[in-house]
Nucleic acid binder design. Structure first.
Lengths: 231, 231, 231, 231
DNA sequence: AATGAATGAGGGTTCATTCAT
DNA sequence: AATGAATGAACCCTCATTCAT
């Protein structure tokens, strides 16, 4: 490709001149102004959160730099501060965004008709594992948040809510199976706790040693053991 | 004894020549680097590690300041660097110190005579919980290390070894019970993985929400469920 | 003009697609990284180099503090690092700036018409002496660079180039006089070396003892001696 | 060589045990106490100065560390301060030691009988070049001192004295030749200045570019040119 | 709305110097 | 006389945040 000479106009436009020869030139004038509509705010926030997830996941909450996030979001550093008033604010924003979506899968599965509780769980962990495998940074960030929970009330509160809901949903799932007579269950709350612990524990083992634990194999086995133990 | 002629080399060594006769000589080259007083050395390292555990646990690995660690160790900042050549080095030093001691309890319990596997596990978790309750920073630091494992090979490797040994010890414990006919166990390796996952999972739930989970109650229950599930 | 669809890439680029028809499209990928305002950039660099020259000259390369340079440049310390990525980088930047300008005088004098070589040299040293007298730090820095050349390849390379050019220019000047029959000269390269040595040697003597050597008197005398020696 | 086990006694002795086998051992007990005599002081100072020359030459005055000098001197850091009360003091000590010896060669040559002044000079530069070639750090340190002269009166004063004596000796040498009628010389002081400048200038050119200037060839040529110019 | 130049407090690390043994 | 453990001031560099344009 021949040389390209962009020229920045005062009207948020870029004129790109493509000099085929010295005297023949293609001019493309492009209005660079992004669409102004009320959704800008949420679009930018998405953009930033996505960048934050990537960078925080890669470097950790403390070591990640706002510059890097701005670069990944294709925005200037200053613009970040139009949408999040501090790095801390961004951390909490990401926390909320991530964990508010985390249980969507589980809720969907609970609403599926006609499956045993065990089948639902197997189904669920398959989806979770796929998600985690598709983006390693998700797990990284989770542990970042766990580590930080002890020091930051906002994070701890959010995680408390999250795990509370998590256990509540699993208890509901187990109640379904109990109502259908799949197993005699004494305390579905206690069992839900055990289930969450198993899932989180296996995930930790996988996280610290990808070679020693294969979640696609291990988790279904563990789930089945769990349900066998109930009867 | 004949005359001895020491010669001082440039490499902190002394070459000692022992002239048996004029023409026959024994040369002994000895490194004179007097071992830096090993008592002081290990005392200071302990002092620093203790301070590091406290400060890292309180503020997190990244946010902790070397000044604070020096203060907590009642040493000057410069002295820290006589024993650990960087903050990173100190982090790894602490990691090794902590996790190398973590399994001592478990090993001791395995060697106790005449208990069922279940009783041993109940015993073990009681001790662990006591330990964690006595110093909250222990758990904080653990999660710091987990979070950092993804980015730092040295940490990841250490954790891999740690969890590998952990599972190995639990498998050995389960084999003991199996040999005594306490339960029919197919795969003690798989069961050990489940056990570690349960323990770690419950710990995480407790860590994120001290009000929702009481490990003194929960862990024994979970252990019993586990052993019931085996039969 | 047909519709234009810009697409924002992750690399600060915009791909502009010009759909001539549905199936034929011109793609122009343009780097949108707006050139960091080049005026400000060069202005700041000048500002910083000027301050660096002053402070390095006053305190020496190693003893000079970045704080002082920032103060002298009326900028914050952080700003220094926007333009030079380290103290080392600044040292090399100053080296290049100083020595690239050092020979401008000599080139100008060589291009003056109608003077004997001797007259040109007299003229040249007068200017040089004026320059050095007007700012003592110039000489200081030169000797800093000489001292550092042995340890830093970047500095050594630059000085080699500088002295190479210096000798080349003087050789050219001497060739001019030779061509005009002012003196029978065998080897203008060797003579140029002698000339540079004389100038640098006298400068050193002056530098170490301002009272013993007066360059305004000494250098012309030495130059005349040199040319007398040629015949 | 088999393993050697040194043991440090309380009486400044080292016992070296050479275990030929487990039961047969050679013991060499060596008194490590260095001889206590009134010359200790000057011996240590020599030791330290030698180390300082090496390390300062290698790293520069500012970048050299007292630790390195202590190591090179095979002494502890504390001992350095028994003989020189500060790094600065050591710098000045080295300066004096080096430059007080620098003119010994020249004085010796002046006192040789029956040579022309030119022959003496040729002789002298040969020795000087040999000296510089044998230990590159000598030149390095010289330029360190030149660079520092502007900021430190003690250094400047010493260099002034040195160059003053240097010129005086060369003037005396030239007077000898003049007295013998080797050349008609108007001002031997001025000629001595020229000579020093030539020597120092050539040395600088060699120092900054070892490939462009070969002092063994260049200096004799320059000397001869100088004497030719006198007649 | 967006930019990016500028800031400056803060942290990790170094190293000359001291001093108890 | 000699040691080396300890100190702490100093310095380079980073990076979250601000603000004029």
């Amino acid at each position: 490709m021949a040389d390209i000479y962009p020229e920045y106009g005062f009207d948020n436009s870029v004129s790109v001149y493509y000099y085929i020869t010295d005297w023949s030139v293609i001019e493309l004038k492009v209005n660079m102004a992004r669409p102004k509509n009320p959704e800008i705010r949420s679009e930018r926030q998405q953009q930033i959160l996505e960048a934050a997830r990537q960078i925080f996941g890669e470097h950790g909450l403390a070591e990640a730099r706002m510059d890097d996030i701005a670069l990944a979001a294709r925005l200037s550093k200053g613009t970040l501060y139009l949408y999040y008033k501090s790095k801390d604010d961004l951390v909490v924003g990401l926390l909320e965004a991530l964990f508010s979506q985390a249980l969507v899968q589980l809720r969907a599965i609970i609403e599926l008709p006609g499956l045993t509780a065990e089948a639902r769980m197997i189904h669920y962990v398959e989806r979770i594992v796929s998600l985690m495998e598709s983006d390693a940074s998700l797990l990284n960030i989770s542990y970042e948040f766990y580590a930080v929970a002890a020091r930051r009330p906002a994070v701890r509160d959010y995680l408390q809510t999250y795990f509370g809901e998590y256990r509540g949903l699993l208890a509901a799932l187990l109640e379904q199976g109990k109502a259908r007579g799949e197993y005699p269950l004494v305390d579905s709350g206690q069992a839900a706790l055990t289930l969450v612990a198993l899932l989180e524990g296996c995930t930790l083992l996988w996280f610290t040693d990808h070679t020693a634990v294969n979640p696609r194999q291990t988790l279904p086995v563990v789930i089945r053991q769990f349900f066998n133990g109930l009867t």
